[in-house]
């Protein structure tokens, strides 16, 4: 199963990058979500796949049963998902604001910091 999930991770990265490069704010946001998902999946798969053995300690035991899933990547991903969500919300608000301030959703037309006359020499 591992190679298939590795392929899926690559597919999510490729789709995310392609969407982010489109130059349209909305598609850029789609791409951002895809890329976050891909990053989470990457960490998860790299930490090793274990089926049906969550990292829990049975009642009455002091250590988990032999062969439970790797808890570390799960903890990392939990953090990553939440931070990715925060980033997404902020990006969404920023995109919305930028659209209303500049009247366009095309990223290449947003040239407030680097006006055209500066570079068109």
């Amino acid at each position: 199963m591992e190679p298939i999930l590795a392929g899926l991770t690559g597919l999510l990265v490729a789709a995310g990058v392609y969407l982010m490069l489109s130059g349209n704010l909305v598609r850029y946001l789609f791409g951002l979500v895809m890329l976050s998902n891909a990053a989470n999946l990457l960490i998860f798969v790299a930490g090793g796949l274990t089926r049906s053995a969550p990292p829990l300690i049975e009642a009455g035991q002091k250590v988990p049963a032999e062969g439970v899933a790797n808890a570390l990547p799960q903890a990392l991903i939990l953090t990553a998902i939440v931070i990715g969500f925060g980033l997404f919300c902020f990006a969404l608000a920023l995109a919305y604001r930028a659209f209303y301030a500049m009247g366009t959703a095309k990223m290449d037309d947003m040239r407030l910091a680097e006006p055209l006359e500066d570079t068109a020499k």
């Binding site: 690559g10 990265v13 490729a14 789709a15 990058v17 990457l42």
Partner: peptide
């Protein structure tokens, strides 16, 4: 660019 990066992630992960 996307495909190159995607394939890179796949092979790197493997």
């Amino acid at each position: 660019i996307s495909v190159m990066l995607g394939l890179g992630v796949t092979f790197g992960l493997m």
